[in-house]
Amino acid sequence: MPAPFILDRSSVTQVMAWVLAALLPGIAVSVWLFGPGILVTLSLAIVTALAAEAAMLKARGYPATPFLTDLSAIVTAWLLALSLPTLAPWWLIVTGTLFAIVVAKHLYGGLGQNIFNPAMVGYAVLIVSFPVQMTQWAGPLSLTETPLTLAQSASVIFGGEFPKATLDAVTMATPLDALRTGLLQQYTVDEIITQPIFGHYGGVGFEWLAAAFLLGGLLLWALRIISWHVPLAFLAGIWLTAGFLHFFDPGRFGAPWFHLFAPSVMLGAFFIATDPVSGATTPRGKLIFGLGAGFLTIVIRTWGGYPDGVAFAILLLNLCVPLIDQYTQPRVYGEARKGKEPQA
C-alpha cells in the first residue's frame, strides 16, 4: 500500500451518524408538540430503507457489511420521513422510501453516485402522485382536542382508522397550506395569519420544529460536517426573494420570516441542500446552489401548484450541479489571479 499510512479518524459512518444525531432535536420537538406519530413514520421508513438497501446491494453484487453500516440509507429514510405528513398512511411511507433507495440511489449507482437527493426524489414522487394523502399532517397538540397516543397513531398510519374523531379533528392544514388556500380565496396575508394555526413567525408548533432543525444544523456546522455556504445562501435566497415580494405587496406575499420559519426550510437548508453527493462542491458553487434553491423555493410556493417548493427547488438545482461546479472552479495555489499577474 502506498502513502499515506495513517488516516484521520473520520469515516462515512461517522459523518452519517452525526447527521442523524443532529436530527434528534427536531424529532424530539415533533413528538413533544405534534404527538408520537413521527416515531412510527421514522421506524417504518428505517425498516423499508434497510431492506431495500440490502436487496439492492445483493442484486448489484456489493458486500452488505460496509455499505449497510454506513448509515446513509437511514439518513435518507429519516429525511424523507421528516418531510412527510406525520399521519401519512403506511403505504405512502413505504412507496416513497422504496423509490428513494431503489431508484434514486441504487439505480443511479449507489452511494456517492446519485445525481438527485434520494429523499427529495421520494418526496417529489409522493406529492405528485398522492397529493391528498400528503396533507395528513397532525395538527399541533395545543390546537388539537383529542391528541393521539403512539398506538392510536400507529393504527391511523397502518389501518387508516381514526379513533373517536374524524380525520379533520386530528389533522390540520399546515401554515403554508393555509396561506396558499387563503390567498386563492382572495384573502390578504394579514387576514389569513389571524387563523389560530399561525404563531409568532411561522405556524404554531411548526416554528419550534424549524428552530430545532436550525439547532441541529448549527451543530453540524460546528462539527465541520457541513460548511456554512449552502445553508446561509439557501436561507438568504429565501429571505431576499420573499422579502422583495413582501416589500412590494405585503397583502399578497407572505413575510420573509414566515417563509424562513417553515420546518421544511430549515430541514432543507441544513440537511438536504447540504447533501454532498448531489450538491455543488466548490465554495462559490455552494453559494450559487443555495441562493438558487432559496429563490426557486419561494417562486414555487408563490406561483407553483404545490404549497411547498423546497423539494422541487433542491432537485432542480441538483440538475445544475455539474455546470455550477465546472464554472466555479477556485484558483489553485500559484495560479495567476484573474486580470492580475502572479506576484513576482
Binding site: 462515512v12 459523518v15 460496509p66 454532498p276 453527493v277
Partner: peptide
C-alpha cells in the same frame, strides 16, 4: 468506500 463528494 465510494466518494461522497464531501470535499474534506
Amino acid at each position: 468506500l465510494p466518494c461522497i463528494r464531501c470535499t474534506r
